[in-house]
Every structure is written in structure tokens, then in C-alpha cells.
Amino acid sequence: MKLTSNKLWIFQDDDINTDVIFPGRYTYDPLTPEQMATHAMEDYNPNFAKEVSEGDIIIAGNNFGAGSSREQAVTCLKAAGVSCIIAKSFARIYYRNAINEALPLVISPECSNLILNKKDEYQNEQITVDFDNGLIKTKDSEFKFPKLDEQALKIFQAGGLVNYTKERLKEKI
């Protein structure tokens, strides 16, 4: 799989938490993914939900997705069109939830550092993420990133945990 970014969303803060990605006040409303997308990043960047579009990539610092186990913080970004998040690191449950929903996350402190530090320069540049080879290409550099481990990859390739578990249930019968 290979992605080319549409627009880059560059978030310089560390510890961007699930409450600002998808506010708690909506967590127990039964919303569709599309409705969730309209609240994406609402308490962090109110323009995000209006301006984000298909194929956008988020670049973030350390511990993206900190805090609660709420999965809507993954669902809302995916439904909003975000194709991938590149960060220095991710919170554990967020990372797992993303695998389970087949939203690709890339851990690359080097790439994040470069783009976070030169926000203006990269704002309107395209980057490509090559998952098969674990490689990010920016206009002037390349970064390797660790590929998913086998189990995570299986879930990812099935299109998420719902499909993966469906397949496993079938095997059992």
C-alpha cells in the first residue's frame, strides 16, 4: 500500500488527547462515523472538521491519542478522510484502536521532527508513505519506519478487527 498526501495537518503539541480529538460530551450519543467526523478535533482546532478532506495526513508529536479508550477518536478522523497519522509516538490504546479500525499509524520521530520544526516550509508539500517498504518520502528526504508486527498486520489486512474476527469465527465452525 502506498499513500500520497493531500493536505498536511501539522499539530505541534505533544500529548494531544482523545478529549480534544473527540470531545467527551458526544461519546455517549449514538452517532454515525460521518456525524462523528463533524466533531473531529473540535476542541483542538475548530477549523479542522470543516476543512479536512479525503487523503489528508496528520503529523503530530509525542503520545498522540493520550487519555481515554474512546474509539471515536480514531473513527472520527478516519471518517473525516484522514488517510494516515505520522507521529513521534502514540498512546497505547489509541494505537490498538487504530489497528482495529484499519487506520494506518506511522511512528517516525525523525519525520515528525523535521515537519514539525519546519511547519511553514512543509505545509503545502506532498509526502508519500510506502507501507510495504516502511518508507516515507518528503520533498527532500526519506525516512524508514518500523513495519507492523505480524498479528497487527493480519488485522489490518482484513480491513479491521470486525472483519478479522468474522473470519476467525468462520474458521471455528
Binding site: N97, E101, T165
Partner: peptide, 20 residues
């Protein structure tokens, strides 16, 4: 150990999950 909703649904179904 905390997990997410989809994963919980999956454990309800098959009684198992992977952990590192």
C-alpha cells in the same frame, strides 16, 4: 488492561485477544 470497543466486541465473540 484497557482495550477499545471493537476489541471488546471481538473478545465477547471469540473469548480471546492478542497482547504484546
Amino acid at each position: 488492561i484497557p482495550i477499545g470497543r471493537t476489541e471488546t466486541a471481538s473478545v465477547w465473540a471469540i473469548g480471546q485477544t492478542w497482547l504484546k
